[in-house]
Amino acid sequence: MVLDPLWLLLALPVAFALGWLASRLEMRQWVREQRDAPKAYFKGLNLLLNEQQDKAIDAFVEAVQDDPHSADLHFALGNLFRRRGEFERAVRVHQHLLRRGDLSTGERERAQHALAQDFMKAGLFDRAEEAFRALEGTPFDTEARLALLTLHERSRDWRAAAEVAARLEKSGIGSFATRIGHYWCEVAQEADARGDAEGAQAALQRAREVAPTAPRPWLLEGERHLRAGRVAQALQAWDELRARHPGTFPLVAAAYAQAALTAGQRAHAREQLELVYAQQPDTNLLAALRKLDTPEQAAQRLLDHLRQQPALSVAAQVLELPPADWAEDTRPQLQASVARAAQPMQRYRCAACGFEARNYFWQCPGCQGWDTYPPRRIEDL
């Protein structure tokens, strides 16, 4: 059978018209879907901005059901579940995204990061660590390493924390020297607890190398020497601490004074403590100096400190002295110390938000709540 060319000429316009009509119908359907999806999305967003999270979740769930291929809707729904504390549902949403074969590389990495956050918030630290490690080399690399650093600190895995912090520092986002120094100090303390003196010493050496300006290695060095009975070395380490970090030295001032008495170095220790005390009068330094004073000198030092800085703890110690040792202005100084210490307690505190005020308010200035102030001051509760 031979086809008439005339029929071919007539079939071509018909086929073209049918194709054009099909494309128009498909385009209309696509436009309708795209128009409906943003409406559902913006409805959920509007509810979320109005802090109606339950209704927002319902709106996003409906939107995801209508458009299961929209990754943005899944991300919005998963993040909302996480904010609501529904971590299991958030995990399911983000795992569903990762199982999709049509997801782009960027969206897959974003879903992996969201999943790691879900595990982190849920307290599943092992799974969170695994999820964050999967993000190495991605645009989320820095955020993942910072999260891993937090995880290692929580689990007290100090060596792993030091390694991650060192890699973060090499990446150029900032200095982590101080934190790494603390990590090695923690390693030293754990080694000491196990009786591993060599390991503790090596860890402290690493801490000094990483953070040369940090005070904690010198403080721990003195404590280790003192526990081992090496009093002279302890004093030497703490003298180094005093020279480098006089502001931190009061933390070991009492132990320093006691070690000096044991080593027969009362005069030297008193001289060094006096130098630091002259720069920054401190109750810890005061207590250390009183260990090295005679009873008369200790009483006078206490009164002098009270005159310069009316502290409540010093006032309590002055009250333990015999009245014969009091100076003429001791009583006013005691009154000033007690009055200053009592000021923070003579306030009303909101039971809803904790806002404190000297005057009683029926409506809290902090949270705007009514009748949230107990009618009793803090000192009376």
Rank of each mutant, 00 (worst) to 15 (best):
E88Y: 07
A160Q: 15
R179L: 14
A76G: 12
G174D: 05
G137D: 05
H113C: 10
L124E: 06
D102Y: 10
A114I: 06
D54I: 08
P68K: 04
A56P: 03
R84S: 15
D126K: 14
L146Q: 00
A134G: 14
H113A: 14
E136V: 07
V91M: 03
G106P: 07
E130L: 12
F119S: 00
A128C: 02
G172E: 05
Q53I: 12
L135A: 04
L103E: 07
V91E: 05
A144E: 04
A111V: 04
F60C: 12
E130H: 14
L103V: 11
S171V: 00
Q53P: 11
A144C: 08
A111Y: 05
F75D: 12
H94D: 05
F81R: 14
R99C: 02
G181W: 09
R82S: 15
E88K: 14
A71F: 12
A165R: 04
R179Y: 11
E186I: 07
E186V: 04
K55Y: 08
V91T: 08
S155K: 15
A56G: 06
D157S: 15
I180V: 10
H113N: 14
E107H: 13
H152E: 10
R156E: 06
E86I: 01
I180P: 02
R179N: 11
T150V: 08
S171F: 00
R159M: 03
E129I: 08
E107C: 09
D58L: 08
L135C: 04
Q52F: 02
R179K: 15
S70Y: 11
A134C: 09
R154F: 01
F87K: 02
D58E: 12
G106R: 12
R127K: 14
A131Y: 06
L149W: 01
A59K: 07
R82T: 13
F132D: 00
F176Y: 14
E129H: 05
R159I: 03
T105L: 09
L98C: 10
A59R: 05
G101W: 02
L168H: 00
D67P: 06
T138K: 01
V91W: 00
Q95E: 10
Q95H: 07
E136Q: 13
A166Q: 08
C185S: 09
R108Y: 03
K55V: 07
E129D: 10
A131M: 09
R92M: 07
D118C: 13
L73Y: 13
F87P: 00
E130C: 09
R83E: 11
H94A: 09
D126S: 14
Q53T: 15
F81H: 15
H113T: 06
D157P: 05
G78Y: 05
R83L: 11
A144S: 09
F132K: 00
S70E: 11
D66V: 07
A59I: 03
V64D: 13
D58T: 12
R100E: 01
H152Y: 14
Y183L: 10
L103S: 12
D54T: 12
Q189F: 01
A128T: 00
V187A: 03
E109F: 04
